[in-house]
Design a protein around this nucleic acid. Structure first.
Length: 272
DNA sequence: AGCGGAACCTGTCGGC
DNA sequence: TGCCGACAGGTTCCGC
């Protein structure tokens, strides 16, 4: 479900809702595979801790707690955070309740149970955070970085842009959109991308992500914000999920192909 | 190194 | 109506 802009939207809204609040108890309705290991320990590690901040790294949410400790969450496909007044009963896909001293609760809800919740005393202990590549909206996003790491790579550009160890935060929707705007065919090898084209990728990655964040992300089917509202960026999508629809630039039907077991949408005329 | 395939789960949709 | 396969915004593991 969520890529970088959707996670950023959730982080900003959660920050407003929970900073300063304290976890009074944690109720787990279904853990596997969301919470790994000892559930009692997970609860003990969090009870009594205060939310100081919520931030994002790639598609991970990082909750800073005091006394110092971190809750690291990943929404995967269908994970959601909801902050609400206390519910009498968990609803069907509620997996974990974080009951707060203010009387409200932060709910982790996840239809498919792919999401993850982990606790760390030191973020350096998180293997998954450790492996991540550069943030696409940071200054590290340069021509030099791509030429140096991918200048002679035979990998398909679609697969490279989805690789979280190279650039961290893009997902299946935005990669199709970025390549369409950059007019680059998704099956081109990374090594064949010239400087001008890398510059286009950098420019449109930043532009599309920023516009998507301004619009609170993209809702295709079930992405929801903390207050259950939907994102609005889906109205600006040019190719994703538009198979057979005319290209906005040239009218050629948009094609769907499968790369790395995932759909790619592109215009065979505009993208070379 | 990097690919394809399967796995982790549950739901929806389209075709027959 | 019912069943079956394909597909879904993500990541990880395994074998070649």
């Amino acid at each position: 479900m969520p890529e970088l802009p959707e996670v950023e939207t959730v982080v900003r809204e959660l920050r407003e809702e929970i900073c300063g609040d304290i976890i009074s108890s944690v109720e787990i309705f279904r853990s596997n595979p969301i919470v790994q290991g000892d559930l009692d320990m997970f609860q003990e590690q969090l009870c009594g801790r205060k939310f100081m901040d919520v931030r994002r790294r790639a598609k991970y949410l990082i909750f800073n707690l005091e006394p110092k400790r971190y809750l690291v969450a990943h929404l995967r496909m269908t994970g959601k955070f909801i902050v609400s007044d206390p519910l009498p009963e968990p609803t069907k896909y509620n997996r974990v309740w974080f009951n707060l001293e203010s009387g409200r609760q932060m709910i982790f809800d996840d239809i498919r149970c792919f999401g993850t919740l982990e606790v760390y005393d030191d973020l350096a202990d998180s293997k998954s955070l450790q492996k991540l590549g550069i943030e696409p909206l940071s200054k590290a996003m340069t021509l030099g970085y791509f030429k140096k790491n991918l200048g002679s790579s035979k990998r398909e550009i679609k697969s490279v842009l989805l690789d979280q160890q190279i650039i961290a935060g893009l997902g299946n929707i935005y990669v199709s959109e970025i390549l369409f705007r950059s007019r680059i065919h998704p099956q081109r090898s990374a090594g064949s991308i010239n400087k001008r084209e890398w510059s286009l990728i950098i420019k449109y990655t930043k532009y599309i992500l920023q516009e998507a964040i301004k619009n609170n992300g993209t809702t295709i089917s079930d992405f929801r914000r903390v207050d259950d509202k939907t994102g609005a960026f889906q109205q600006f999508l040019q190719v994703y999920d538009k198979k057979e629809q005319p290209c906005t630039e040239c009218g050629t039907p948009i094609q769907r192909i499968v790369q790395q077991q995932r759909s790619t949408f592109f215009c065979p005329e505009c993208q070379r």
